[in-house]
Design a protein around this nucleic acid. Structure first.
Length: 513
RNA sequence: GGGCCUGUAGCUCAGUCGGUAGAGCAGCGGCCUUUUAAGCCGUUUGUCGCGGGUUCGAGUCCCGCCGGGCCUACCA
């Protein structure tokens, strides 16, 4: 044959030959399937007549017969193709197939001599021609050979990853299921899902640098939102008592294995309730998510991605997270006393707090407020110990500018964070509804900003105006969906649970100009 | 942002002391009507990330740039 042809050209030629035979795979619009691969394998009935469609992912040709595995994405099943059964045309089409093509087949179920549940194919309909050589691996006893392992390519061309890597596919699908499980749970609790602006004059509700963009119609510089909080509370001020939003927020900060510049926040607010109600709701929500996505409240997370995971059963390299029990509740300052060996009296003023920090071996140069020191101690000594679901309660006022003061200790707030596997999972509090208090907190933040903290909260007059109109007492909670997905899938990189993670563009040498 | 590592065929990778690039899979041509990492025979494929430099000669050594990974710093 022509040796100058590229792999793509060869496939185009096969396409042309299919058309000469009277079958144009691109003209086919639909194919009625009776079963998925999983359904056939699980409810296997020898001799049953079926119709199935999927992608050809492996081939073994043997003269006038052959085997091919066909995957519908979820699972794959082997087809047995014989010239005698397919006829001249069918057999010719079979010989024009490439790995990666989609086909529709009809036939009946049988078991091969070597014991594999298979389809004895009677008709073959090519449904597509793949023009590229897909990096499909070979497989034996669950071990995959060759295949796609270049992480750069996996992230930039995610469709290839979804086709070729079952583990990657599984984690991404679990993430999608988590989001929809959250929605179902919130809807069932009578919450309304709302949508609030992404383009904002002042991006508030969190401590982060925003992205900037421009609004042409109003000739206005605007920012992309960094949280959902302030708008959602304005909805609470409007007497819609239970609201949530799941949506993308944007923070113009560093990229790392746990940080993506755009990520998905989930926040919910409920009038007439406080942080204890939020804890109860979070506990119940995780029972729901774990049950829907993993089928159990005992979720097994393994640090070894190749390990065969059985939910609810522990292993050497994994941990079983038990969402079935109430979460542990710890007072933040008590936890620091116990684990860092720093007494709460030492954290009463800045000087003694800095000394204590130095004593336990932490750098103190940048610390100029008590809240920052407390959070450093927490991060270093407490967080790593919080493996099973735990609520840490009582956060310092300096780092909690939207949380109600604790009446028993005005330096602390009515705020908690949930931790699992040593990582923060949610952040919640009884929301400030005193507009005077809130204004003072914002002003402290503005002062911080003046001192050079460019991530301090801006003052939001519209929000304060709404608070002055009157907000009922209210509990609120935020959960980073990406972090939650990482936690529950065992992903060690945030890109593993984002379909299309932000990547630096590859510079092309030659562009058409 | 800082430190360390890395980029070779469609995919997974090897390439020694600097001597002009290789294997397996995929592909192509044969044989084979229950194979399964099918097998057997034959065979094709490269901007060695990009650009400079040293050298008679660079995938290999040096410099710069681009992409990626890990650790670290900020955060969710």
């Amino acid at each position: 044959m022509n040796e100058e042809l590229s792999l793509r050209d060869i496939r185009l030629q096969k396409l042309a030959k299919m058309r000469e035979l009277g079958h144009d795979p691109y003209l086919v619009e639909r194919f009625e399937r009776s079963h998925s691969a999983k359904e056939m394998l699980e409810g296997f009935e020898e001799g049953k007549q079926i119709a199935f469609a999927g992608r050809v992912v492996s081939f073994r040709l043997m003269g006038k017969a052959g085997f091919a595995h066909i995957s519908d994405g979820e699972a794959k099943i082997q087809g047995y193709f014989r010239k005698d059964d397919l006829g001249e045309l069918g057999w010719d089409l079979y010989n024009l197939l490439d790995l990666g093509d989609h086909v529709g087949i009809t036939g009946y179920l049988f078991v091969t001599k070597t014991g594999e549940k298979s389809i004895h194919v009677q008709t073959l309909t090519p449904l597509n021609k793949s023009l590229q050589t897909l990096p499909l691996g070979k497989e034996k006893d669950g071990q995959v050979f060759y295949g796609l392992s270049d992480v750069d390519m996996r992230y930039r061309h995610r469709h290839l990853d979804l086709i070729c890597n079952a583990e990657a596919r599984k984690a991404l699908i679990q993430r999608m299921k988590m989001t929809s499980a959250v929605r179902r749970f919130m809807d069932s609790k009578g919450y309304l899902e709302v949508e609030t602006p992404m383009l904002q004059m002042e991006a508030g509700g969190a401590a982060a640098r925003p992205f900037l963009t421009h609004y042409n119609a109003y000739d206005l510089d605007v920012k992309l939102r960094i949280s959902l909080e302030l708008y959602l509370k304005r909805v609470i001020c409007g007497d819609i008592p239970k609201v949530y939003e799941i949506g993308r927020v944007f923070r113009n900060e560093g990229v790392s294995n746990r940080h993506s510049p755009e990520f998905t926040m989930f926040e919910f607010y409920e009038a007439y309730s406080n942080l204890e109600d939020m804890m109860a709701l979070v506990e119940e929500m995780f029972v729901h998510i774990a049950t829907e996505v993993f089928g159990t409240t005992q979720v097994h997370i393994s640090s070894d991605p190749n390990e065969e995971v059985t939910e609810g059963v522990a292993s050497e390299t994994g941990v079983v997270l038990d969402f079935g029990k109430p979460w542990k509740r710890l007072d933040l300052l008590t936890a620091i006393e116990d684990l860092a060996g720093v007494r709460r009296e030492e954290l009463a003023d800045l000087d003694s707090a800095r000394k204590a920090m130095e004593r336990v071996g932490l750098p103190i140069e940048k610390e100029n407020n008590l809240g920052g020191i407390i959070e450093k101690l927490l991060e270093k000594f407490v967080e790593p110990t919080l493996i099973q679901p735990t609520f840490l309660i009582g956060y310092p006022i300096e780092t909690s500018p939207l949380a109600k003061k604790d009446p028993s200790n005005p330096k602390m707030t009515r705020r908690f964070e949930g931790y699992v596997r040593g990582r923060e999972l949610c952040n919640a509090f009884s929301e400030i509804n005193d507009p005077i208090d809130q204004r003072e907190r914002f002003e402290q933040q503005v002062a911080e900003r003046a001192k050079g903290d460019d991530e301090a909260h801006p003052l939001d007059e519209e929000f304060l105006f709404a608070l002055e109109g009157g907000m009922p007492p209210c509990g609120g909670c935020g959960i980073g969906i990406d972090r939650m997905a990482m936690l529950l899938t065992g992903a060690d990189h945030i890109r593993e649970i984002l379909l299309f993670p932000t990547m630096r563009p590859v510079q092309t040498v030659q562009t058409e100009e």
